[in-house]
Amino acid sequence: MNMFQFIAQNRTEVLELTLEHLWMVGISTLLAVMVGIPLGILITRWPALDKPVLGAANIIQTVPSLALFGFLLPVPWIGARAERLAILALTLYALLPLIRNTYAGIKGVDSSVIEAGRGMGMTDRQLLFQVQLPLALGVIIAGVRVATVISVGLATIAAAIGAGGLGEYIFRGLAMVNNQLILAGAVPAAALALLADVSLGWLENRLASNVVVPQQ
């Protein structure tokens, strides 16, 4: 039985696992956005924090994913259900691109624009919401894009701790030495990653085209 036949015959299960996969990626990316963007903003205004925060996010990124799942296992409430654990781990991994891109996006706004705004009597808050964030939006969305694509791939590992998702087929296929089964998990996961990449890339371009720096 090849991969396509397998998917066709098990389409309800494939769909279920795909939705599970999307759920894990979606929730974790949302959580990472809610934490990472404010943190990125915070470290632009509190320069003493930028190195420690970016450093910590970097270190998290270097922990092998399987090990991170293991480390989080003893955490109360989180460790009680595989799905929660997977979402937390994915959130932690998604933080670095979000913090880094928010930080870089805001820092990259033309200083003469900021200076003009401040000189005209804009408050810090007005500068942030009317100038810095809108101008950094393209770069921030690029961070969301990277985080999402990484998450789609990483979420396949979550099946190892029983959190479900398309990784289920990959691990089952590994255990049964069945390449077609592995592909039945890997190909839809890759397709999801591509889809996320293309759609967020489109959004990024659209937002960036509104804020092109005047060329001279």
Binding site: D110, S112, E115, A116, G119, Q130, P134, P214, Q216
Partner: peptide
């Protein structure tokens, strides 16, 4: 009022 060299207009 504050006017600077490259105008410092908000591009967006």
């Amino acid at each position: 009022g504050y006017v600077i060299q490259d105008a410092g207009l908000f591009p967006h």
